[in-house]
């Protein structure tokens, strides 16, 4: 019954937002637990993607009970910018990681504590 109604009922913004939340939390936990700098970077990507999913969901009027709330194209555009930003961020972060690796012959972010108070 539950399963049946699961597929017959329409999904709304909330469902997408829930998926986005899962992605976000996965990314955050990834950042918090991975010692590898690239792992941290992947966590960041997950977080950004979760945010993206939210933007997409908010942009679609059809997902709302009341479509006046929808962001419309602005939401999609924001997500495009986020994607572009993420790409740039990945490039820079990778460059930083490589520099870090070159200087410390390590990729462990725990070693990067020079700014410790």
């Amino acid at each position: 019954m539950l399963l049946a109604s699961l597929f017959t009922e329409p999904v709304g913004v909330a469902h997408y937002v829930a998926v986005g939340a899962v992605l976000f939390v996965c990314g955050a936990v990834c950042m918090a637990t991975k010692r590898n700098a690239l792992g941290v970077l992947m966590g960041v990507e997950l977080v950004l993607n979760g945010a993206n999913l939210n933007f997409i969901a908010f942009s679609q009027p059809a997902l709302y009970a009341d479509s006046a709330w929808a962001l419309g194209l602005d939401g999609q555009l924001a997500s495009i910018f986020v994607i572009v930003l993420a790409a740039a961020e990945a490039a820079v972060a990778l460059a930083i990681a490589l520099n870090f690796y070159n200087n410390f012959t390590s990729i462990d972010v725990d070693h990067a504590d020079e700014l410790k108070g």
Binding site: M31, A32, T33, R35, V40, V109, A112, D113, K116, G117
Partner: peptide
């Protein structure tokens, strides 16, 4: 006192944010 919080550990900062 506050300098103790600056552990210099990246991952801890993420936890702080969350």
């Amino acid at each position: 006192r506050l300098r103790v919080l600056q552990t210099g550990r990246l991952r801890q900062y993420v936890v702080f944010i969350v």
